[in-house]
Design a protein around this nucleic acid. Structure first.
Length: 577
RNA sequence: CGGAGUGUAGCGCAGCCUGGUAGCGCACCACACUGGGGGUGUGGUGGUCGUCGGUUCAAAUCCGGCCACUCCGACCA
């Protein structure tokens, strides 16, 4: 490609509404343009990268034995009603009617459609297992699109769905996909982690997320420094406390604590550490027979944070977790939410493991403006049950007993689930087994955010000048920059010759043949911003010595290579795979 | 969905408070110079000031409705 025939579309200014680096650089480098909130046009440079990412994902999926199909973006409501998700899904599901007033939606995912295909096409256990994938545009009407293509409403996803006669077969394919995903993200050169994850609303049991480590990531992931334990913060547990609860030594004392409603306030007022206090959060129970929902108190150590996912899984607690309103608290406990505590509380008290081993602690007294000091479990406060309710913290012991936990931010680029028979049962997707009996298929599903990978790669690979692409997803492998071509026939001739020769050995080459009004500085800056990994500068100065200047993007030094060697040099330097 | 904010040229912004000729930088076009790091000069192109309505002799500016977009939070298959 010649820049004179191409759309460079770079800009010096950083657009005001881009906050993360990948979004800024994608706009500045002319890869994308916003069309509306969460909707982006992909310009030529961006599309080249996107297609290379897709190609690698496709190659590895094909290698794994998965079969590629293409399913429509638009899906009929009937299938979603059959699976039960038409009514369950929130407004992320973009619903609309066609001219005949029939209900449709834009596909945010394709479990229903694939299950429909498979129940029609697959009849025998002999055809299983089968893993089917597509690389397709998805639409989710996100409440708050942000970070450019990292969280857009329309995006490209590789989604695959596997079908099995039994759990063993599902386990095997799940592991195969785990390994395939690891291969894919390794090919992009990512620093990534696979972590145990909550399977969320999609249903099912076993689930792993693949995260690219990046400070701008929206998720917090937890891993041990000495073992392979890794989990999403939502799922992560610390090792249960090993210490026994010390014996009580203090008397329960009621203390006026005017205007002290938060843990911070109380600790400042009383001069105690947060870890010697407990905080009490009141949530709704899950008995919904009548309007009079009972309340449940969740008690954590003052310095710990509630994990809402874990709390919602505790027996008796509403799911999704719903906090009691101030009125409900007032009606049942008769105090404001800043003064609640487990002592003589008129509700069930569920206690976090770390809060349960405290003795002589400070807590709310269930009277406005009062706290207790010297409170002790059993003696002063009844425990309904002890659970793991809190977020892990940096430095907690790993649950497998090996090492301590670190927390880093990550961008979720892949997610694999074991769905079980949630969709196959609802939609009656069965095969005949070897005994001739009808069997509901087990399912797995596996997603990769293809467009998100482009952003994640930039998050990991950039410097103050711009993007630094790995060779295998760079929009171009090599850029040739002729200097003073308008004055030097030799520079022009050598540049053209190189351009042809490098293309002939299979490289994607960009020849910066913009006219003399485009100064060398502009060309260098543009190509560094765009992130082309290999740069050749052809100049009279170099040609006098029979040399071309080579520079690798991101490396400080240039090197001179003989004109006669340059093609062979690049052939072995550029990593095309 | 709650809170906050912004809409003026392709991009970044000023002008609004105190109503009266719509401006600056970048980009773009022409010419000349320059020619290994976003160069210089001269001259240009480009805007229904988000939109609808109100006040006024007069509205980018004051008032109101609507729309769009952004940020923080909640949510996220």
């Amino acid at each position: 490609m010649r820049t004179s025939k191409y759309l460079i579309a770079t800009s010096k200014e950083t657009p005001a509404d881009a906050v993360v680096i990948s979004h800024q650089l994608m706009l500045k480098a002319g890869m994308i343009r916003k069309l509306a909130s969460g909707l982006y046009n992909w310009l030529p440079t961006g599309l080249r990268v996107l297609q290379k990412v897709s190609r690698i994902v496709k190659e590895e999926m094909d290698n794994s034995g998965a079969l590629e199909v293409s399913m429509p973006v638009v899906q009929p409501a009937e299938l979603w009603e059959e699976s039960g998700r038409w009514d369950v899904m929130g407004d992320e599901l973009q619903r609309f009617k066609d001219r005949h007033d029939r209900d449709f939606c834009l596909g945010p995912t394709h479990e229903e459609v694939i299950t429909d295909i498979v129940r029609n096409e697959i009849n025998s256990y002999k055809q299983l297992p089968m893993n089917i994938y597509q690389i397709q545009t998805k639409f989710r009407d996100e409440r708050r699109p942000r970070f450019g293509v990292m969280r857009s409403r329309e995006f490209i996803m590789k989604d695959s769905y596997s079908f099995h006669l039994n759990q063993d077969s599902l386990d095997q394919t799940y592991q195969l996909m785990y390994d395939t995903y690891s291969n894919i993200f390794s090919r992009f050169g990512f620093s990534f982690r696979a972590v145990e994850a909550d399977s969320g609303n999609i249903g099912g049991n076993k689930s792993h997320e693949f995260h690219v480590l990046a400070d701008s990531g929206e998720d917090e992931i937890v891993f041990s420094d000495q073992s392979d334990y890794a989990a999403n913060l939502e799922m992560a547990s610390a090792q249960a406390p090993l210490a026994e609860r010390p014996p009580s030594s203090a008397e329960l004392a009621l203390i006026p604590t005017p205007d002290s409603r938060s843990i911070d306030d109380v600790c400042n007022f009383l001069g105690v550490k947060q870890s010697s206090t407990v905080k009490t959060l009141v949530v709704l129970s899950d008995d919904d027979e009548d309007d009079e929902q009972t309340l449940i108190a969740l008690v954590l150590r003052g310095d710990h944070q509630l994990n809402e996912i874990k709390a919602a899984k505790v027996a008796g607690v509403s799911s999704p977790l719903t906090f009691a309103t101030e009125e409900q608290i007032r009606a049942t406990i008769n105090c404001d939410p800043g003064s609640i505590g487990p002592v003589k509380a008129p509700v069930k008290v569920i206690v976090d493991r770390d809060a349960a081993i405290l003795a002589d602690f400070v807590c709310g007294a269930n009277q406005d403006g009062h706290h207790y000091s010297g409170a002790n479990w059993e003696r002063d406060a009844r425990i309904e049950s002890v659970e793991d309710l809190r977020n892990v913290e940096e430095g907690d012991a790993s649950p497998d007993g090996n090492g301590t936990l670190s927390i880093k931010r990550g961008v979720e680029v892949g997610h694999i689930f074991q769905l079980g028979n949630k969709y196959s049962a609802a939609m009656n997707a069965t095969v005949l087994d070897e005994n001739g009996k009808s069997a509901i298929m087990e399912m797995g599903c596996y997603g990769i955010g293809v467009s998100r990978i482009v952003a994640a790669a930039i998050e990991q690979c950039h410097d103050e000048k711009g993007i630094i692409w790995p060779d295998n997803i760079a929009p171009f492998h090599v850029v040739i920059i002729p200097l003073n071509a308008h004055k030097s026939e030799e520079v022009t001739a050598v540049s053209e010759s190189l351009y042809a020769q490098l293309q002939a050995i299979g490289l994607d080459v960009l020849l910066d043949d913009r006219d003399k009004k485009t100064s060398p500085g502009v060309k260098f800056a543009d190509m560094e911003l765009i992130g082309i990994p290999h740069r050749l500068v052809v100049s009279d100065r170099g040609l006098e010595n029979g040399q071309i200047e080579y520079k690798k993007r991101g490396m400080p030094d240039t090197q001179d290579v003989a004109v006669s060697d340059i093609v062979a040099f690049l052939k072995k330097t550029v990593l095309i795979d």
